[in-house]
Design a binder for these strands. Sequence first.
DNA 1: GAGCACTTACTCGGATACGTACTGTCCGAGTTCGATGGG
DNA 2: CCCATCGAACTCGGACAGTACGTATCCGAGTAAGTGCTC
Lengths: 160, 160
Amino acid sequence: MKMNEGVEWAMHSCVNLSWLPGQAVTAKHLAAFYDLPTAYLNKQLQALTRAGILSSVSGPKGGFQLARDPRKISLLDIVVAIDGADDAFRCTEILRVGPGADPKADYRKVCEISQAMRAAELTYRRELAGQTIAAVAERVVQNYPDAPDNTRHRFANLKS
Amino acid sequence: MKMNEGVEWAMHSCVNLSWLPGQAVTAKHLAAFYDLPTAYLNKQLQALTRAGILSSVSGPKGGFQLARDPRKISLLDIVVAIDGADDAFRCTEILRVGPGADPKADYRKVCEISQAMRAAELTYRRELAGQTIAAVAERVVQNYPDAPDNTRHRFANLKS
DNA sequence: GAGCACTTACTCGGATACGTACTGTCCGAGTTCGATGGG
DNA sequence: CCCATCGAACTCGGACAGTACGTATCCGAGTAAGTGCTC
């Protein structure tokens, strides 16, 4: 069980974008910031755009920017946008074949194992839903007050 | 992000084994119980054996049985045994390339994003670690008091 | 000199290959039981 | 009749293919700016 690597890239990119409000940043620049493959990062940014987290503009002077207030963007939103909304544990309802099977029962709700796994994933998602891009960025600022300025400076110095 | 399907099979098999204490059950029988591919289930049972959750005996009259008290087997134990112990979210420390990078820093502990994701996975694992095979089996009995007897009966009737 | 049309360059977007890991299967090592031959 | 030896059948164990998904890349659609021409 491993999560898409693009999730990490997307989260860092969103934090960076939260420090450059109102301006469109190209995928090329976002990729150069962490030395990532441009085309592949672009693919992740597209997913974020489809999910309504980013807004995109084509053409020269185009790029990506946050589509809404970073306080309204949770880490779960990003995970769902890139990694999908499905649970990691998939109940295939094998109990249907077991003894005393009830064809019309929903074993995803009856099966105790399924319930336990879903409950665990629920706490996981609840935790991620409680963390926002703004909150993460705020904690970064507390530890490294110069981070936003450094970021803006670096983006300004990325040529072409 | 999806989990190995074998996790579900392994959990159900462990619950069934908890109702047949002291006797070795073959992979063939455990597979027939839910109409699963025998060889593939066997592979999962091997993993559980390597993890010390099951004990195995070869030859005729051989098979698998729980290696310890089901109250000491958590759902997390099974997930780790089959799906691996690695976290789903992998911090690749891309901040090393960013501005003000400190080559000797451990960004898995410094990076706020990495910390948030690890915290979420920790709650997930804590939840799974709190659930045992015995507890799950107990809840099944509360809802279906005949389940253990039905299971034993069905295993007894599986010929060859 | 001002306005308009065209060209150009740049960016996002989706369609297309590649690699890894989950899924599924097979055959060999080891063990127990039963049969058989001898004492 | 009892025991030892041999053979056979059954099970786990690890090694071997098939397939789906994550990873990586490329080229086309669309857009805005810049340029040159016309009025």
